[in-house]
Computed example of a mutant assay.
Amino acid sequence: MKIKPLADRVVIKLVEEEETTKGGLILSGSAKEKPQVAEVLAVGPGGMVDGKEVQMIVKVGDKVLTSKYSGTEVKVDGEECTIVRQSDILAVVE
């Protein structure tokens, strides 16, 4: 199954963080913070959103920083993805 986002929505997949600290300690699942770096999997067409013209800036394959608790988490073919609005994306990581 393939997701095609509508309007200004973007489908992202969170990038896993390292499971050890700089000092070499292994973190348990509850001690880890939710990752904020994600890869863009699909981008909506943009267009009129809430009476304003929205042009999509991000593209598939970009690495982006997102707000910690933004978006809606979904499972597609057993893979966890998040659907966010482009305005919830804080920056593109180069």
Rank of each mutant, 00 (worst) to 15 (best):
K34F: 07
G24E: 14
G29I: 00
E18F: 00
A31T: 09
P5I: 09
K34W: 05
E16Y: 02
V15K: 11
Q36I: 04
K34H: 11
S28W: 00
T20M: 03
G29E: 05
I26Q: 13
A7E: 11
T20A: 01
K22R: 09
G23R: 13
K34A: 13
K32S: 11
D8S: 06
P5W: 08
E16S: 04
G24Q: 12
V15M: 11
A7H: 09
E33Q: 12
E17A: 12
L27G: 12
E17I: 10
G24I: 13
L6N: 14
S28M: 06
E18Y: 01
L27A: 09
A38Q: 02
K34E: 09
K22S: 12
V11W: 10
A31H: 08
V37W: 02
L27Y: 07
I12P: 00
G23Q: 13
T20Q: 03
L25Y: 12
G24T: 10
T21V: 08
L27T: 05
D8A: 05
T20H: 03
S28I: 01
E17P: 03
E18V: 01
V10Q: 07
A7P: 01
P5A: 12
L14Q: 04
T21D: 12
A31E: 14
K22D: 15
V37S: 04
A7V: 06
S28F: 04
I26E: 14
P35H: 03
E16L: 02
L25A: 15
A7N: 14
D8H: 04
E18I: 00
E33N: 09
E17S: 13
K13Q: 15
K34R: 13
K22E: 14
I26N: 09
A38Y: 01
D8N: 10
S28A: 13
